[in-house]
Nucleic acid binder design. Sequence first.
DNA 1: GGCTATAATGATAGCGCTTTCATAATCAGA
DNA 2: TCTGATTATGAAAGCGCTATCATTATAGCC
Lengths: 342, 342
Amino acid sequence: MNSENVTIYDIASDAGVSIATVSRVLRGEASVSEATRKKVLDAIERRNYRPSSIARGLSSRTTHSLGIVLPKLLNPHYAMIFTGAQEEARKLGYTMSLFPWSSLDTREYNPAAMLAERRLDGLIVCVEYLPPDHDERVLSALQDLRQYMPVVLIGCVPPSYDFPSVSNNNAAMMEEIVRYLASLGHEKIAFIGGVREDHDPLRRDVGYENGLRDARLPYVSSYRVYCRGTAEDGAAAFTGMLSSLKREYWPTAVIALNDLVAMGCMASARDLGLAIPEQLSVIGCDNLFCTPYLVPPLTSINTHQQRTGTRAVQLLISGENKKETADWELVERASCAHAPKS
Amino acid sequence: MNSENVTIYDIASDAGVSIATVSRVLRGEASVSEATRKKVLDAIERRNYRPSSIARGLSSRTTHSLGIVLPKLLNPHYAMIFTGAQEEARKLGYTMSLFPWSSLDTREYNPAAMLAERRLDGLIVCVEYLPPDHDERVLSALQDLRQYMPVVLIGCVPPSYDFPSVSNNNAAMMEEIVRYLASLGHEKIAFIGGVREDHDPLRRDVGYENGLRDARLPYVSSYRVYCRGTAEDGAAAFTGMLSSLKREYWPTAVIALNDLVAMGCMASARDLGLAIPEQLSVIGCDNLFCTPYLVPPLTSINTHQQRTGTRAVQLLISGENKKETADWELVERASCAHAPKS
DNA sequence: GGCTATAATGATAGCGCTTTCATAATCAGA
DNA sequence: TCTGATTATGAAAGCGCTATCATTATAGCC
């Protein structure tokens, strides 16, 4: 642009020293006399010099930049993970680039090529529930990437994947949620899960069933449905479930995959004239910013997504090969109440 | 990592050609015989070779990567801008890195230094309403950056900033919103604006006043308050306004800075026993994903943030020095109705 | 004063590519 | 068969740094 690129040579000649000395000053090495250091810093200031991270990266073989791959930022769930990761990266002196999930998924070109070329110092990948054919391709893309940089996974990690990771213990979460609802007197508890959780060792539906068993409640297959994670899908799934059931068998509580799905359920319940929480308790997951402003405010699960992002970065940098589980807690709001008497 | 880094030399010797030829194949130059091209591609495949974008960037002086600076991704408004920008960048063969606003703002170290060092091919900056002292520092940071890469601004761009930009015509938006509410019979229309819009040539409050004048409605200063853009702030601002007013002077409609603030107003109204939309019409801005699921669904303004992001990238790449205005439209939902009779 | 340890600086070889420029091979046309 | 284009390749000079090793200046000591 404007100023022709100032290089280390310009600074060196301005300050009357060698480029090695300038480089020492840049990297904060101790063995430079105060007088020289000052000359160099003055020249840098005068010329408004900024060392090129590109050149630096080439010769030092480290770029101080990390990457994160996620499905879509428009879902606040991922925005939170990203934010946590980004802040931690920044603290540790790294920048963070974001890549859409399609970077791994597409067939247009070698999926991981672009990422591999970037010579990142590390990569975080948020793994969603994958259709089976994707699964293999993604795994091979990940293996490929791993040749170039350390990789940490977030989310649903199939047991066959041998990667460091941070994931939720969805099963335990669901177990406790069922217990919670049972303690409120609910006996007809519906469950809306995510499609294709089969690969998840900590899948929610297992926790749901265990929870029912613990509470000595019968498992009713019609109470269990699956959907993709949007509000529309949630509404459709819930409406579908109710329409297949006689009114007296309608559930008195529903556990949703996430808050978006819960929002869909609430809309659907409103359409059907079901009062929340009097006739139906609803519980979501993710604790999105809008949950307190829904009517009634939505009870949800805080899964500490930011902290998940943070931990992923820490694992990446430290190089530990751990599989971690994020902790979580129930955030009680007004959408859950005692089961109706009838 | 695993495989020692394969370089262009390895491929060259594998294929029995010079590195110049390998480079030609990589860049898809025409002047390579089919036979040679095949030999090279085979070697690349065999060794699983990926050219280093770092080295490439150093010698070609272009990185094919863009940056975007924004306040916070947790606000879906910015997530939408980012998504639009990212998709367009990808289409054009660029990657996009995200930097928190504090990159420009902090005093800890030279604000723009990190960005300048990255030698991006271009940078988008989302400018928020700034406190006056920030304003100068940000401007100088932007000027500084501009020496290294083209910069495009999004959002509130002070007239003194001579940068290409994409912004909203907030004034025109507000004018039309006031007209809309007036057409529904509202006469007491409140307005919650953003703090420090003073620098915005298209500031909302100006549009608000113009709208009132056009509708021949009196301007009442108590109906106009300001807040930062969160739901909590919105609730506080609205509650504050009402508490300073006798009940008969309470507004029958409120225009909020954005949907978050509108959500705050709705909560506040509910607390005060005001029915929406029977006693109070509420209108937000940004058309967030959750607006249809609020009770009642929130009328809002679609400002096409994704398209804004897209355009910003196009301006960046094309190098046009234009100041553009995004278009927008009212999305009517149930939170606005005719003014109450009384 | 002479000699070694220490601190400060310089020369220079990469890092892995792109990009001239030079050279060799191929092919029309006369 | 020879000439001048044209096409296909190679050699080598950067790009702007880091990092090693060599060199010089400074100090400390007997």
